[in-house]
Design a protein around this nucleic acid. Sequence first.
DNA 1: TCATATTGTTCCGGTAGCGTAATTATGGAG
DNA 2: CTCCATAATTACGCTACCGGAACAATATGA
Lengths: 114, 114
Amino acid sequence: MLVIKPGQALTLWHRAMLAQVRDDDPDLTTRQMAILLTIYLDPPPHTVRGLAEHLGVTKPVITRALDTMGIMGFVSRRRDERDRRNVLIQRTVKGSEYLERLGLLVAHEAETVV
Amino acid sequence: MLVIKPGQALTLWHRAMLAQVRDDDPDLTTRQMAILLTIYLDPPPHTVRGLAEHLGVTKPVITRALDTMGIMGFVSRRRDERDRRNVLIQRTVKGSEYLERLGLLVAHEAETVV
DNA sequence: TCATATTGTTCCGGTAGCGTAATTATGGAG
DNA sequence: CTCCATAATTACGCTACCGGAACAATATGA
């Protein structure tokens, strides 16, 4: 349980956003970030349909985001052999490292929020 | 001073992103959000050039973001009468309310992060 | 006054995401 | 075997953002 005041939350948000903008890597969209975090934090299996329902968006939104993040190396896809209509979305080392850095960044910035 | 572990930070980030995606309002880009928060949290005056340097982006990026967020009603612009080359970026009631909700949302979600 | 610097904006071609509607591949019920 | 349901993708026209270059307005200093 974390105790954060609204003003502190905004300051933390601000610093995290600034860090994202300032580094050279291309920014993920809000949707892409929500998808990525769901894949890494919620228990598998993850499918296009499941993610679409979870986020309240259409399936093409998920497909496109997976395309982009697949090129970035943050996720990979595999056919479900038990029901070959499904695609199982999988984590990657690179994606894990990316989110690990993000978590460390936010946690670190939090230390100096007044 | 906040004490947040990296895993907690990711969970908090995840929930905040999900909330942004699920609501019907159009998502701000990372850059737009960084600009908006800078305008509201850092002391004025704010100029295009100043914001561009602060974020490490080009001036057209700022101009475009201000256009979009101006249409949304989150910021307004005014000529600096002392040096009419400058444009002073100003806060609005609507923008304040938007960020207030964001701060409350993040703070509220934090309460239940384990 | 007039050349030069500074500020913000606009223009350009290109890229990426959007929503909706088709399309492909697979599974399952009769 | 056939028909229908389901999963994911692709197609299409559109909008928004991108970087870089050109631009107009204003200030400054010789």
